[in-house]
Computed example of a mutant assay.
Amino acid sequence: MPCATRYDADGGLLERFTDTDKTRDRSVNTGGKYTSPLGKGHLLAAGWDLEASHREQTKVSLDKNGNPQFADSGDNLTADTRRVAVFAQDEWDITPQWAVYMGARWEGIRTSSDRSSGTITNTSKVFSPLLHGVWKIPGHEKDQIRASLTKSYKSPNVQDLIALPFLSRLNSATRPDRTGNPDLKPELATGLDLAYEHYLGRNGILSVSGFIRDIDNLIRRQLSLQQTDLGQRWVSTPGNIGHARTSGIELEAKFQLAELMDNAPNVDFRSNYSRFWSKVDGIQGPDNRLDQQAKQTANIGADWRIKTIPLTLGASYNWTPAIRVQTSTTQLVEISRKRVVDMYGLWKFDARTQLRVSAANLLADDATGENTVDANGLTSHATTLNPTYRQVSIRLETKF
Rank of each mutant, 00 (worst) to 15 (best):
M1E: 11
Q326G: 03
V341M: 07
Q222I: 13
L290K: 08
L257N: 00
T58S: 07
F127G: 15
N29T: 10
D19H: 12
F276T: 05
K142N: 14
V28A: 12
A9H: 09
I394K: 11
Y7E: 01
R270D: 13
S328Q: 09
L257I: 06
R146M: 06
S172R: 10
T372K: 03
Q69D: 04
T119G: 10
P310D: 02
R220D: 11
V280F: 01
K64Q: 09
S271H: 00
G32E: 01
R178W: 11
H381F: 09
E397P: 07
G314E: 01
T5S: 08
D229T: 15
Y153G: 13
S247Q: 03
L311N: 03
E51M: 15
N361A: 01
M343R: 11
G377E: 01
A298P: 01
I109T: 06
F211A: 03
E259R: 04
V84G: 12
S53H: 14
N288E: 06
P156L: 08
G201F: 03
K142S: 14
L396H: 07
A45P: 04
G133K: 02
W277V: 02
K348V: 07
G108L: 06
V158F: 08
L170A: 14
A264T: 03
Q391A: 13
Y34R: 06
P2T: 10
K348P: 00
F70I: 02
V84T: 12
R175Q: 11
A244C: 04
Q222D: 07
L188I: 09
Y389P: 07
K399S: 15
T5Q: 10
L362H: 02
Q69S: 02
A351Q: 14
S271M: 06
P310A: 04
F166I: 14
Q222R: 09
L396S: 05
T95Q: 03
R169T: 06
F211C: 02
I215Q: 05
P129E: 05
A298C: 00
E252K: 13
G204F: 04
T119Q: 11
N371T: 03
Q159L: 15
T5F: 01
I94T: 02
E56T: 10
T174W: 01
P96G: 06
D303F: 13
L290T: 06
F166Y: 15
A367L: 15
I335Y: 15
F211S: 00
F349C: 10
Y344Q: 12
Q57C: 05
D72V: 08
R24I: 12
R202F: 12
P321W: 03
V86H: 04
T330N: 08
